[in-house]
Design a protein around this nucleic acid. Structure first.
Lengths: 165, 165
DNA sequence: AAGATTTATCACAGCGCTAAGAGATCCACT
DNA sequence: AGTGGATCTCTTAGCGCTGTGATAAATCTT
C-alpha cells in the first residue's frame, strides 16, 4: 500500500536524487495526520460552540483537579503556546464566563485562572464527545498497533525533551 | 520513562475515572510532536525569509518536476488546506516573484501556477537545510524505530483515507 | 539598593477557515 | 441541437488564533 507521502518521496527521489528525503517519511506523515485529525476535532468542538484553543485551556484546568486553578504560565507550559497566546485565550474565555482571573496573594506578578461552574460543566459535557471522536479516528488500528505507535511517539517525544514534570 | 502525555492520562484517570481517555495516548502525542516539530521547522524557514506555508507551495511545485506547474486545486489537495488559503499563499508568493499565475487554455475556469527561476533557486537552496533540520529532529530514534514509526503512521493515514493518487 | 529575572499584557502582523460569489464547464432533458 | 441547472474553479471578505517583540510591574539576586 502507498499513501500520499510515499508519492512525495518518490517525486523527490526523481527530482533531487542527491538529497536524502527519508526524514519526510516520518515528519510528513506526522504533519498530514495532524491536519486530518485537527480538522475532525475542530468539528466536534464547533458543535459545542468551542474551538480547540479554548477546549485546551478548559481541559487543562479541569484535569488539574479541584480547585481547577492554574497560572497563565502553567497553562502556557501545558499547551506549548506563547504567553501572548494564553493571554488572548483567557480574554476570550473570561469574556464568556468560563474562567475567572484573580491576582495571586503570594506573588504580585502572578495571576490565578480558575474554572467557573459554567466552564466546568461545559468541559464535562464536551469531553465524552471529544473522546468518541478521537476513538473513531483511531479505529483503523488494532490494539497492538496503537500500543506500538504510542511507544514510538513517546520515544520520539522524550528524545526531544518532553518531560512529565 | 514518562512524558507529558503520561501525566495527562494519569490526571484524567484521577478526575474522570468513568471515561476512557486512552485515545489521547496517541492523539495527544501527535499533537505535541507536531507543535515541537513545527516550531523548529519554522525557524529554519525563517532563516531563509520564508514560512512553512510558502515553502509548502514551492516544494510541491518543485517536486512535481518540469515544468514546475500545477493548478491551485492540485496544490490545495497536496497541502490539505482550503482553496481560500491557497489563493492567499499564491498572492504572497506571486508578489515576491517566486511563482507566476497564468490562465489555462484548456479550461477557462482554471489557473496554472508555475515556479519562477527565483522560486526554484530559493527552494533548492532551502531544501538541504530543511532536511538537515528534519534529520536532527529524528536523531533520537534508531533506524529500526524510525521504520516502525513510519509503518504505524502509514497504517493510520491509510485508515483515514489518505491515498497516493 | 541596583540590576537581572520572572510574569503577564498589549499591539501588530501573518496565516487559516468559513461563507459567499463570479465565471466557466458539464450534464440531462426536451 | 439547445437550454437551464448542477458542478467545478478560483477569488474575496471577514473573523479567529498564533507568534513576535516591546512594555510594565513585582520579585529575586548580589
Amino acid at each position: 500500500m502507498a499513501d500520499h507521502v510515499d508519492l512525495v518521496l518518490a517525486q523527490w527521489a526523481a527530482e533531487r536524487p542527491d538529497l536524502d528525503a527519508s526524514p519526510m517519511a516520518v515528519i510528513g506523515r506526522l504533519t498530514r495526520l495532524h491536519r486530518m485529525i485537527d480538522a475532525e476535532l475542530r468539528r466536534t468542538f464547533g458543535s459545542h460552540g468551542l474551538d480547540g484553543a479554548s477546549f485546551d485551556v478548559l481541559a487543562t484546568l479541569r484535569r488539574s483537579g479541584p480547585p481547577y486553578r492554574l497560572t497563565p504560565t502553567g497553562l502556557m507550559r501545558a499547551s506549548m503556546v506563547t504567553s501572548g497566546a494564553i493571554t488572548q485565550r483567557l480574554d476570550r474565555l473570561e469574556g464568556r464566563g468560563l474562567v475567572v482571573r484573580s491576582s495571586s496573594e503570594s506573588d504580585g506578578r502572578s495571576v490565578l485562572v480558575e474554572l467557573t461552574d459554567a466552564g466546568r460543566e461545559l468541559v464535562d459535557r464536551v469531553l465524552p464527545d471529544h473522546l468518541d471522536t478521537e476513538q473513531r479516528l483511531l479505529a483503523g488500528l488494532t490494539g497492538a498497533q496503537r500500543d506500538a505507535l504510542t511507544g514510538a511517539l513517546r520515544t520520539l517525544l522524550e528524545s526531544l525533551g518532553d518531560a512529565s514534570e
